[in-house]
Amino acid sequence: MTHSFAVVNAFQILGITLCGGFGLLVVLAALRKRLRPLPGAAWLTLWSSAGVAIARPELTVVVANKLGIQRGADLIFYLAILGMFVGFFLMYVRMRRIDEGLTTVVRRLAIAEARHRIETGEGDESRSTETPTTD
């Protein structure tokens, strides 16, 4: 297998630059403790792999073949689909957490307002202690 590092097309320059930039952001976020080690390592692996795949596309063929897939492009495609599902899953989990938090806030506010209204006698609540007569 021969490979010339000198032949780099415009897409590779752009792709490698972007991947390097994102990788650098991940490292900075991790250093500033804004990213936990495990997600940080996962992101770094993702951007590094993307950078290598763009710089040395023939390597994807080698990995694909080892996994029983013929073309490197197919491997990238499958991984992208898989990544998309993982992304949806993580977003769904996060959305549920936000949703739960919102419900808790709405609930606490609603109960506090109702209790305040009763305590101040505002709005003529009919929560009187008298029991309405039954028919």
Binding site: L102, R107, I111, E113, A114, I118, E125
Partner: peptide
């Protein structure tokens, strides 16, 4: 006695609010 949700959260959420109240 009216307990008002500021935004619509669904029947399950409303019942749980009712229980808590």
């Amino acid at each position: 006695e009216v307990v008002s949700h500021a935004v619509n959260r669904g029947q399950g959420a409303a019942l749980q609010t009712g229980f808590a109240y």
